[in-house]
Design a protein around this nucleic acid. Structure first.
Lengths: 186, 186
DNA sequence: ATAAACATGTAAGACGTTACATGATTGA
DNA sequence: TCAATCATGTAACGTCTTACATGTTTAT
Protein backbone atom coordinates (compact mmCIF):
# COMPACT_ATOMS: atom_id res chain seq x y z
CA UNK A 1 0.00 0.00 0.00
CA UNK A 2 2.80 2.36 0.93
CA UNK A 3 4.91 1.52 -2.09
CA UNK A 4 2.74 2.62 -4.95
CA UNK A 5 4.60 3.61 -8.04
CA UNK A 6 4.86 7.33 -7.53
CA UNK A 7 4.59 8.35 -11.15
CA UNK A 8 1.19 6.65 -11.19
CA UNK A 9 0.11 8.89 -8.36
CA UNK A 10 1.69 12.02 -9.78
CA UNK A 11 -0.16 11.55 -13.06
CA UNK A 12 -3.37 10.57 -11.33
CA UNK A 13 -3.03 13.69 -9.23
CA UNK A 14 -2.72 15.88 -12.30
CA UNK A 15 -5.68 14.13 -13.88
CA UNK A 16 -7.67 14.76 -10.70
CA UNK A 17 -7.42 18.46 -11.54
CA UNK A 18 -8.32 18.15 -15.21
CA UNK A 19 -8.24 15.89 -18.27
CA UNK A 20 -4.81 15.90 -19.88
CA UNK A 21 -2.74 14.42 -22.68
CA UNK A 22 0.68 12.89 -22.11
CA UNK A 23 2.24 15.93 -23.66
CA UNK A 24 0.35 18.24 -21.33
CA UNK A 25 1.35 16.13 -18.35
CA UNK A 26 4.96 16.58 -19.34
CA UNK A 27 4.41 20.33 -19.46
CA UNK A 28 2.98 20.27 -15.93
CA UNK A 29 5.99 18.31 -14.73
CA UNK A 30 8.28 20.88 -16.32
CA UNK A 31 6.15 23.71 -15.01
CA UNK A 32 4.45 23.69 -11.64
CA UNK A 33 6.10 20.50 -10.37
CA UNK A 34 9.50 21.41 -11.79
CA UNK A 35 11.42 22.02 -8.60
CA UNK A 36 10.21 18.98 -6.68
CA UNK A 37 9.34 16.31 -9.22
CA UNK A 38 10.17 15.29 -12.77
CA UNK A 39 9.43 12.74 -15.46
CA UNK A 40 10.36 12.05 -19.07
CA UNK A 41 8.13 11.21 -22.02
CA UNK A 42 9.61 7.75 -21.94
CA UNK A 43 8.03 7.14 -18.57
CA UNK A 44 4.86 9.18 -18.97
CA UNK A 45 3.38 7.50 -22.03
CA UNK A 46 3.85 3.91 -20.84
CA UNK A 47 2.54 4.84 -17.39
CA UNK A 48 -0.53 6.39 -18.93
CA UNK A 49 -1.25 3.12 -20.71
CA UNK A 50 -0.76 1.15 -17.52
CA UNK A 51 -3.15 3.48 -15.76
CA UNK A 52 -5.73 2.82 -18.46
CA UNK A 53 -5.15 -0.95 -18.21
CA UNK A 54 -5.69 -0.83 -14.46
CA UNK A 55 -8.88 1.15 -14.92
CA UNK A 56 -7.52 4.21 -13.14
CA UNK A 57 -7.81 6.40 -16.22
CA UNK A 58 -9.71 6.37 -19.50
CA UNK A 59 -9.17 7.92 -22.88
CA UNK A 60 -11.71 10.59 -23.61
CA UNK A 61 -12.87 11.74 -27.02
CA UNK A 62 -11.76 15.25 -27.79
CA UNK A 63 -14.36 16.91 -29.99
CA UNK A 64 -12.20 20.00 -29.70
CA UNK A 65 -9.22 20.19 -32.02
CA UNK A 66 -10.62 17.20 -33.96
CA UNK A 67 -7.89 15.07 -35.39
CA UNK A 68 -4.79 16.40 -33.77
CA UNK A 69 -3.01 13.33 -32.66
CA UNK A 70 -4.00 14.07 -29.09
CA UNK A 71 -5.08 11.43 -26.62
CA UNK A 72 -6.74 12.98 -23.66
CA UNK A 73 -7.08 11.01 -20.44
CA UNK A 74 -9.54 11.37 -17.60
CA UNK A 75 -9.30 9.91 -14.11
CA UNK A 76 -11.91 7.28 -13.17
CA UNK A 77 -13.59 6.76 -9.81
CA UNK A 78 -11.23 3.85 -9.20
CA UNK A 79 -8.32 6.08 -10.07
CA UNK A 80 -9.53 8.72 -7.68
CA UNK A 81 -9.87 6.11 -4.93
CA UNK A 82 -6.34 4.91 -5.62
CA UNK A 83 -5.02 8.44 -5.44
CA UNK A 84 -6.87 9.13 -2.21
CA UNK A 85 -5.52 5.98 -0.63
CA UNK A 86 -1.99 6.99 -1.55
CA UNK A 87 -2.53 10.49 -0.19
CA UNK A 88 -3.65 9.11 3.15
CA UNK A 89 -0.56 6.97 3.61
CA UNK A 90 2.40 8.76 5.23
CA UNK A 91 5.30 9.82 3.06
CA UNK A 92 7.87 7.07 2.68
CA UNK A 93 10.91 9.14 1.77
CA UNK A 94 11.87 12.40 0.17
CA UNK A 95 14.70 11.58 -2.18
CA UNK A 96 17.26 14.33 -2.54
CA UNK A 97 20.36 13.93 -4.60
CA UNK A 98 22.32 17.15 -4.80
CA UNK A 99 25.09 16.44 -7.26
CA UNK A 100 26.36 19.94 -6.43
CA UNK A 101 26.90 19.03 -2.78
CA UNK A 102 28.47 15.73 -3.72
CA UNK A 103 31.06 17.53 -5.83
CA UNK A 104 31.57 20.11 -3.12
CA UNK A 105 32.06 17.46 -0.46
CA UNK A 106 34.97 16.01 -2.40
CA UNK A 107 36.27 19.32 -3.71
CA UNK A 108 39.51 18.91 -1.80
CA UNK A 109 40.72 16.87 -4.74
CA UNK A 110 40.11 19.60 -7.33
CA UNK A 111 40.80 22.83 -5.49
CA UNK A 112 39.09 25.90 -4.17
CA UNK A 113 38.45 27.58 -7.50
CA UNK A 114 36.69 24.53 -8.82
CA UNK A 115 34.49 24.47 -5.72
CA UNK A 116 33.59 28.12 -6.17
CA UNK A 117 32.68 27.43 -9.79
CA UNK A 118 30.19 24.75 -8.75
CA UNK A 119 28.62 27.08 -6.22
CA UNK A 120 28.34 29.85 -8.79
CA UNK A 121 26.66 27.52 -11.28
CA UNK A 122 24.21 26.47 -8.63
CA UNK A 123 23.58 30.10 -7.69
CA UNK A 124 22.93 31.09 -11.29
CA UNK A 125 20.40 28.36 -11.75
CA UNK A 126 18.59 29.36 -8.59
CA UNK A 127 18.68 33.00 -9.58
CA UNK A 128 17.05 32.09 -12.87
CA UNK A 129 14.31 30.04 -11.25
CA UNK A 130 13.45 32.09 -8.20
CA UNK A 131 11.70 34.97 -10.00
CA UNK A 132 9.55 32.47 -11.88
CA UNK A 133 8.38 30.86 -8.68
CA UNK A 134 7.83 34.25 -7.08
CA UNK A 135 5.61 35.28 -9.97
CA UNK A 136 3.64 32.07 -9.55
CA UNK A 137 3.18 32.82 -5.84
CA UNK A 138 1.83 36.30 -6.61
CA UNK A 139 -0.62 35.02 -9.18
CA UNK A 140 -1.76 32.19 -6.94
CA UNK A 141 -2.22 34.50 -3.98
CA UNK A 142 -4.63 36.62 -5.99
CA UNK A 143 -6.86 33.70 -7.03
CA UNK A 144 -6.51 31.14 -4.28
CA UNK A 145 -10.04 31.54 -2.92
CA UNK A 146 -11.63 30.42 -6.15
CA UNK A 147 -10.32 26.89 -6.13
CA UNK A 148 -8.72 24.97 -3.29
CA UNK A 149 -6.32 23.22 -5.68
CA UNK A 150 -4.70 26.65 -6.06
CA UNK A 151 -4.08 26.76 -2.33
CA UNK A 152 -1.96 23.63 -2.40
CA UNK A 153 -0.12 24.78 -5.47
CA UNK A 154 0.56 28.03 -3.61
CA UNK A 155 1.98 26.21 -0.61
CA UNK A 156 4.41 24.22 -2.72
CA UNK A 157 5.46 27.38 -4.56
CA UNK A 158 6.09 29.09 -1.22
CA UNK A 159 8.22 26.13 -0.26
CA UNK A 160 10.22 26.78 -3.40
CA UNK A 161 10.71 30.44 -2.53
CA UNK A 162 11.79 29.69 1.05
CA UNK A 163 14.30 27.04 0.08
CA UNK A 164 15.66 28.91 -2.92
CA UNK A 165 16.25 31.97 -0.78
CA UNK A 166 18.05 29.81 1.76
CA UNK A 167 20.18 28.38 -1.06
CA UNK A 168 21.20 31.87 -2.12
CA UNK A 169 22.16 32.91 1.41
CA UNK A 170 24.25 29.78 1.70
CA UNK A 171 25.94 30.46 -1.63
CA UNK A 172 27.12 33.88 -0.45
CA UNK A 173 28.37 32.46 2.81
CA UNK A 174 30.12 29.52 1.20
CA UNK A 175 31.83 31.61 -1.46
CA UNK A 176 33.12 33.94 1.20
CA UNK A 177 34.59 31.10 3.23
CA UNK A 178 36.26 29.69 0.14
CA UNK A 179 37.66 33.01 -1.02
CA UNK A 180 39.37 33.38 2.34
CA UNK A 181 40.82 29.93 1.91
CA UNK A 182 42.02 30.79 -1.56
CA UNK A 183 44.25 33.50 -0.09
CA UNK A 184 45.78 31.13 2.46
CA UNK A 185 46.74 27.96 0.68
CA UNK A 186 46.69 28.42 -3.08
CA UNK B 1 32.52 12.46 -19.72
CA UNK B 2 29.69 14.28 -18.02
CA UNK B 3 27.61 11.17 -17.45
CA UNK B 4 29.76 9.16 -15.14
CA UNK B 5 27.91 6.83 -12.86
CA UNK B 6 27.59 8.98 -9.81
CA UNK B 7 27.91 6.24 -7.23
CA UNK B 8 31.33 5.48 -8.71
CA UNK B 9 32.36 9.03 -7.99
CA UNK B 10 30.75 9.17 -4.57
CA UNK B 11 32.65 6.07 -3.48
CA UNK B 12 35.86 7.21 -5.11
CA UNK B 13 35.43 10.49 -3.30
CA UNK B 14 35.14 8.77 0.05
CA UNK B 15 38.15 6.62 -0.77
CA UNK B 16 40.08 9.77 -1.64
CA UNK B 17 39.79 10.69 2.03
CA UNK B 18 40.76 7.30 3.43
CA UNK B 19 40.73 3.55 2.81
CA UNK B 20 37.32 2.06 3.54
CA UNK B 21 35.32 -1.16 3.48
CA UNK B 22 31.91 -1.39 1.84
CA UNK B 23 30.35 -1.41 5.24
CA UNK B 24 32.16 1.74 6.25
CA UNK B 25 31.15 3.42 2.99
CA UNK B 26 27.55 2.68 3.82
CA UNK B 27 28.05 4.30 7.21
CA UNK B 28 29.43 7.43 5.57
CA UNK B 29 26.42 7.57 3.26
CA UNK B 30 24.12 7.27 6.26
CA UNK B 31 26.22 9.77 8.18
CA UNK B 32 27.86 12.79 6.64
CA UNK B 33 26.23 12.43 3.20
CA UNK B 34 22.84 11.50 4.62
CA UNK B 35 20.87 14.59 3.71
CA UNK B 36 22.09 14.95 0.15
CA UNK B 37 23.03 11.49 -1.07
CA UNK B 38 22.26 7.85 -0.35
CA UNK B 39 23.09 4.30 -1.39
CA UNK B 40 22.21 0.77 -0.35
CA UNK B 41 24.49 -2.21 0.26
CA UNK B 42 23.02 -3.74 -2.86
CA UNK B 43 24.58 -1.00 -4.93
CA UNK B 44 27.73 -0.36 -2.93
CA UNK B 45 29.29 -3.83 -3.02
CA UNK B 46 28.83 -4.41 -6.76
CA UNK B 47 30.09 -0.90 -7.50
CA UNK B 48 33.16 -1.50 -5.39
CA UNK B 49 33.94 -4.57 -7.48
CA UNK B 50 33.44 -2.64 -10.69
CA UNK B 51 35.78 0.04 -9.40
CA UNK B 52 38.39 -2.61 -8.73
CA UNK B 53 37.87 -4.13 -12.21
CA UNK B 54 38.38 -0.74 -13.81
CA UNK B 55 41.54 -0.17 -11.82
CA UNK B 56 40.12 2.79 -9.91
CA UNK B 57 40.41 1.04 -6.56
CA UNK B 58 42.34 -1.87 -5.09
CA UNK B 59 41.83 -4.18 -2.18
CA UNK B 60 44.34 -3.58 0.55
CA UNK B 61 45.52 -6.06 3.13
CA UNK B 62 44.37 -5.21 6.61
CA UNK B 63 46.96 -6.33 9.09
CA UNK B 64 44.78 -4.68 11.71
CA UNK B 65 41.91 -6.76 13.00
CA UNK B 66 43.34 -9.77 11.16
CA UNK B 67 40.67 -12.08 9.89
CA UNK B 68 37.52 -10.08 10.32
CA UNK B 69 35.76 -10.55 7.05
CA UNK B 70 36.68 -7.00 6.09
CA UNK B 71 37.74 -5.98 2.61
CA UNK B 72 39.34 -2.59 2.66
CA UNK B 73 39.66 -0.62 -0.55
CA UNK B 74 42.08 2.11 -1.50
CA UNK B 75 41.83 4.55 -4.39
CA UNK B 76 44.47 4.23 -7.13
CA UNK B 77 46.11 7.02 -9.11
CA UNK B 78 43.78 6.20 -11.99
CA UNK B 79 40.85 6.38 -9.64
CA UNK B 80 41.99 9.73 -8.38
CA UNK B 81 42.34 11.00 -11.93
CA UNK B 82 38.85 9.77 -12.73
CA UNK B 83 37.47 11.52 -9.67
CA UNK B 84 39.27 14.74 -10.52
CA UNK B 85 37.94 14.68 -14.06
CA UNK B 86 34.40 14.28 -12.76
CA UNK B 87 34.89 17.08 -10.24
CA UNK B 88 36.00 19.44 -13.00
CA UNK B 89 32.94 18.82 -15.14
CA UNK B 90 29.93 21.04 -14.31
CA UNK B 91 27.03 19.55 -12.39
CA UNK B 92 24.51 17.91 -14.69
CA UNK B 93 21.44 18.00 -12.48
CA UNK B 94 20.47 18.04 -8.84
CA UNK B 95 17.66 15.52 -8.55
CA UNK B 96 15.06 16.40 -5.97
CA UNK B 97 11.99 14.32 -5.40
CA UNK B 98 10.00 15.57 -2.48
CA UNK B 99 7.25 13.02 -2.02
CA UNK B 100 5.92 15.33 0.70
CA UNK B 101 5.36 18.15 -1.77
CA UNK B 102 3.86 15.79 -4.30
CA UNK B 103 1.25 14.70 -1.77
CA UNK B 104 0.68 18.27 -0.72
CA UNK B 105 0.22 19.43 -4.28
CA UNK B 106 -2.67 17.00 -4.72
CA UNK B 107 -4.00 17.31 -1.18
CA UNK B 108 -7.23 18.77 -2.46
CA UNK B 109 -8.40 15.21 -2.96
CA UNK B 110 -7.81 14.17 0.65
CA UNK B 111 -8.57 17.27 2.68
CA UNK B 112 -6.91 19.85 4.84
CA UNK B 113 -6.27 17.67 7.88
CA UNK B 114 -4.46 15.13 5.78
CA UNK B 115 -2.30 17.89 4.33
CA UNK B 116 -1.43 19.16 7.80
CA UNK B 117 -0.49 15.65 8.84
CA UNK B 118 2.03 15.40 6.00
CA UNK B 119 3.55 18.72 6.94
CA UNK B 120 3.81 17.69 10.57
CA UNK B 121 5.53 14.45 9.66
CA UNK B 122 7.98 16.38 7.55
CA UNK B 123 8.55 18.87 10.35
CA UNK B 124 9.22 16.13 12.88
CA UNK B 125 11.80 14.52 10.68
CA UNK B 126 13.58 17.83 10.16
CA UNK B 127 13.44 18.59 13.86
CA UNK B 128 15.09 15.28 14.56
CA UNK B 129 17.87 15.84 12.01
CA UNK B 130 18.66 19.50 12.46
CA UNK B 131 20.39 19.24 15.86
CA UNK B 132 22.59 16.45 14.52
CA UNK B 133 23.75 18.60 11.62
CA UNK B 134 24.24 21.57 13.93
CA UNK B 135 26.46 19.51 16.19
CA UNK B 136 28.48 18.46 13.17
CA UNK B 137 28.90 22.11 12.16
CA UNK B 138 30.20 23.03 15.60
CA UNK B 139 32.68 20.18 15.65
CA UNK B 140 33.87 20.93 12.14
CA UNK B 141 34.26 24.61 12.84
CA UNK B 142 36.66 23.82 15.68
CA UNK B 143 38.92 21.60 13.57
CA UNK B 144 38.60 22.88 10.02
CA UNK B 145 42.11 24.30 9.79
CA UNK B 146 43.77 20.94 10.28
CA UNK B 147 42.50 19.35 7.11
CA UNK B 148 40.90 21.01 4.10
CA UNK B 149 38.55 18.06 3.60
CA UNK B 150 36.88 19.24 6.81
CA UNK B 151 36.24 22.61 5.22
CA UNK B 152 34.15 21.09 2.44
CA UNK B 153 32.32 18.86 4.83
CA UNK B 154 31.57 21.97 6.89
CA UNK B 155 30.15 23.79 3.89
CA UNK B 156 27.77 20.95 3.05
CA UNK B 157 26.70 20.75 6.69
CA UNK B 158 26.01 24.47 6.68
CA UNK B 159 23.91 23.95 3.59
CA UNK B 160 21.93 21.42 5.58
CA UNK B 161 21.39 23.85 8.44
CA UNK B 162 20.28 26.66 6.14
CA UNK B 163 17.81 24.56 4.18
CA UNK B 164 16.45 22.74 7.21
CA UNK B 165 15.80 26.01 8.96
CA UNK B 166 14.02 27.25 5.86
CA UNK B 167 11.94 24.07 5.85
CA UNK B 168 10.86 24.69 9.42
CA UNK B 169 9.87 28.27 8.72
CA UNK B 170 7.82 27.08 5.79
CA UNK B 171 6.14 24.39 7.89
CA UNK B 172 4.91 26.97 10.39
CA UNK B 173 3.65 29.22 7.63
CA UNK B 174 1.97 26.41 5.73
CA UNK B 175 0.23 24.97 8.78
CA UNK B 176 -1.11 28.40 9.62
CA UNK B 177 -2.56 28.88 6.16
CA UNK B 178 -4.17 25.46 6.29
CA UNK B 179 -5.63 25.92 9.75
CA UNK B 180 -7.37 29.06 8.53
CA UNK B 181 -8.74 27.09 5.63
CA UNK B 182 -9.94 24.38 7.98
CA UNK B 183 -12.20 26.90 9.72
CA UNK B 184 -13.72 28.07 6.43
CA UNK B 185 -14.65 25.02 4.42
CA UNK B 186 -14.56 21.89 6.51
C1' DA C 1 9.29 27.33 -46.80
C1' DT C 2 10.90 26.21 -42.64
C1' DA C 3 11.75 26.04 -37.83
C1' DA C 4 9.63 25.34 -33.58
C1' DA C 5 6.45 23.30 -31.06
C1' DC C 6 2.97 19.77 -30.84
C1' DA C 7 2.20 14.86 -30.25
C1' DT C 8 2.93 9.79 -29.37
C1' DG C 9 5.41 6.00 -28.83
C1' DT C 10 9.26 2.00 -28.41
C1' DA C 11 13.67 -0.31 -27.25
C1' DA C 12 17.85 -0.74 -24.89
C1' DG C 13 20.13 -0.18 -21.16
C1' DA C 14 21.53 1.94 -16.75
C1' DC C 15 20.72 2.07 -12.16
C1' DG C 16 19.05 1.19 -7.90
C1' DT C 17 16.27 -1.00 -4.12
C1' DT C 18 14.50 -4.84 -1.52
C1' DA C 19 14.80 -9.14 0.12
C1' DC C 20 17.33 -12.89 0.90
C1' DA C 21 21.46 -15.73 2.36
C1' DT C 22 25.31 -16.26 5.42
C1' DG C 23 28.26 -15.97 9.06
C1' DA C 24 31.54 -13.64 12.70
C1' DT C 25 32.22 -10.64 16.63
C1' DT C 26 31.15 -7.88 20.59
C1' DG C 27 29.06 -6.39 24.67
C1' DA C 28 25.41 -6.69 28.17
C1' DT D 1 23.63 -16.60 25.88
C1' DC D 2 21.54 -13.64 23.11
C1' DA D 3 20.89 -9.48 20.68
C1' DA D 4 23.06 -6.07 18.11
C1' DT D 5 26.28 -4.85 15.05
C1' DC D 6 29.75 -5.98 11.91
C1' DA D 7 30.50 -7.75 7.31
C1' DT D 8 29.80 -9.29 2.39
C1' DG D 9 27.30 -10.59 -1.24
C1' DT D 10 23.51 -12.10 -4.93
C1' DA D 11 19.06 -12.29 -7.47
C1' DA D 12 14.87 -10.49 -8.79
C1' DC D 13 12.56 -6.86 -9.84
C1' DG D 14 11.04 -2.15 -10.66
C1' DT D 15 11.79 2.21 -12.55
C1' DC D 16 13.54 5.59 -15.20
C1' DT D 17 16.35 7.92 -18.87
C1' DT D 18 18.16 8.32 -23.42
C1' DA D 19 17.93 7.84 -27.98
C1' DC D 20 15.43 6.82 -31.68
C1' DA D 21 11.36 6.79 -34.91
C1' DT D 22 7.51 9.23 -36.86
C1' DG D 23 4.45 12.52 -38.23
C1' DT D 24 1.46 17.03 -37.71
C1' DT D 25 0.51 21.88 -36.94
C1' DT D 26 1.49 26.68 -36.31
C1' DA D 27 3.66 30.91 -36.79
C1' DT D 28 7.10 33.65 -39.16
Amino acid sequence: MANEKKLDCAILGLLSHQDLTGYEIKKCMDGSLRFFWGASFGSIYPTLKELADKGFAVKVDTPTAGDRNQIKYAITEQGRAHLRKWLEVPVVKDELRYETLLKLFFANEAGVENAIKHIENFEEKINRELPIIKTAVEQLESVCDEDSTHLYYLLTAKFGVKTYEAYLEWCEQAKEVLRKQEGNTQ
